Simulated assay, not measured.
Amino acid sequence: MSGVIELLRRQRVLPVLRLPSPAAATTAATAMFANGMRVVEVTATTPDWATAVRDARREAPDGALVGLGTVTSGALAAQAVEAGAQFLVSPWPAADVRAVADSAGLPFLQGAFTPGEVAAAAAHGPVKVFPAHVGGPSFLVSLRQLLPGADLVPTGGIALEAVPDWLRAGACAVGVGSDLLRPGAADRLRSLLRAFEETS
Rank of each mutant, 00 (worst) to 15 (best):
A50H: 06
L146G: 15
A64F: 02
P154K: 06
L65C: 02
A50N: 03
A44W: 01
L8H: 04
V129Q: 14
T199Y: 01
V100E: 07
A83N: 10
L181A: 14
L14I: 04
L143S: 10
D48R: 15
A186N: 04
A44Y: 03
K128V: 03
G184Y: 03
A121C: 09
S178T: 12
W166T: 06
D102R: 13
T30A: 15
L7M: 10
F108P: 00
P91M: 11
A169P: 01
E6S: 15
E82C: 05
H124M: 07
T45A: 05
G135H: 06
A122Y: 02
N35P: 00
P164A: 11
A185T: 09
L146T: 10
R54H: 13
V66F: 02
S191M: 07
G156W: 03
G116I: 03
D179C: 05
R10S: 14
A28R: 14
A171V: 01
G74H: 11
G3T: 14
A75P: 00
D55Q: 14
A104D: 03
E41G: 06
L167N: 12
R188T: 14
L147D: 13
A85H: 07
V16N: 12
T45V: 09
Q79D: 13
L109S: 04
A162Y: 01
L14G: 03
T26Q: 13
V4S: 04
T43H: 02
F139N: 10
A64L: 04
M1W: 02
R188F: 01
V129S: 12
A104R: 08
G157V: 02
K128F: 00
L76E: 12
A132T: 09
P20G: 13
R54F: 05
P20H: 04
A23K: 15
